[in-house]
């Protein structure tokens, strides 16, 4: 065996990079050659003393300065990244962006001066009126549905109508007086409060007071009447107070409301 091959084998053996069969072969070689064995043992001692060579622990100061350096780099990197994105965007699109903006402005200007304003507004008005009509029909249809959900939806649609006609108001008042579901009735009160300037609505609300059996409806109407300072409501409230089955809390509330209105 030449010198170099032996040297390589020793290092493989010491570093544990030898296969089991090569290791066995190397052990046999050492046993059979005392000179190789002596060389190996000398090197093994040096090898192990180097492996055992230790060093102190680094100080905490090293960690501090490393993490300071890292956080500065991270900040710098983030700033660069956002700057790059902006630069890239404007770098790529600067001429196109300017031209695009100019064309848009010209387009808008031309559109503004050349548009047939009156015709458009007339058309828009016609469309608005048609939409309102369709919506009113929808409200009336929905309020007639057997499902409480759909009736609630009908009241919701009524809220979207800017100017309701008498038919819709009557339909809402009918709902307030006769709907079986208290939530629908509450929604109807809420919807009608949008049109309290209409005498028909105020009258309808006052007339609805004696028809209400649900305490929550009675309290809601009492609050509304106080807010409207509707003196015409005093008489129906007094009638309501005469009823034996009236809830004591409601009774107290109505009495307070009457006093507030007077």
């Amino acid at each position: 065996m030449d010198k170099e091959t032996f040297e390589i084998m020793v290092m493989d053996y010491l570093a544990g990079e030898m296969t089991v069969s090569d290791k066995d072969m190397f052990d046999t070689l050492l046993k059979e050659n005392p000179e190789y064995q002596k060389t190996y043992l000398d090197l093994e001692a040096s090898w192990h003393s180097i492996q055992k060579l230790n060093s102190p622990e680094p100080s905490k100061k090293m960690d501090d300065s490393f993490f300071n350096m890292l956080s500065k780099e991270v900040e710098k990197n983030q700033a660069n990244t956002s700057k790059n994105i902006v630069d890239e965007w404007f770098g790529w699109f600067r001429p196109q962006f300017a031209l695009g903006a100019l064309l848009l402005l010209i387009g808008l200007g031309l559109g503004y001066f050349l548009s047939p304003k009156e015709e458009a507004s007339t058309e828009n008005n016609v469309v608005d009126i048609e939409t309102e009509e369709v919506r009113q029909k929808l409200v009336l249809t929905l309020l007639e549905q057997p499902s409480a959900n759909q009736r609630l939806q009908g009241v919701g649609e009524a809220n979207k109508i800017a100017k309701v006609d008498e038919i819709v108001i009557k339909a809402l008042l009918k709902t307030l007086n006769s709907d079986t579901n208290v939530n629908v009735r509450l929604a109807a009160v809420e919807s009608l409060t949008n049109y309290v300037d209409n005498p028909l609505v105020r009258q309808g609300l006052v007339q609805a007071i004696p028809n209400q059996e649900s305490p929550i409806m009675q309290i809601t109407l009492a609050n509304l009447m106080v807010a409207l300072q509707e003196k015409a409501s005093i008489e129906p409230f007094k009638q309501l107070l005469k009823e034996q089955e009236l809830d004591t809390t409601v009774k107290k509330k109505i009495k307070n409301s009457i006093e507030s209105i007077i």
Binding site: E4, E7, I8, V10, M11, D12, L43, S46, W47, I50
Partner: peptide, 8 residues
């Protein structure tokens, strides 16, 4: 490997 061996 040879270099390490000789250094050792």
């Amino acid at each position: 490997k040879v270099r390490v061996h000789r250094a050792l």
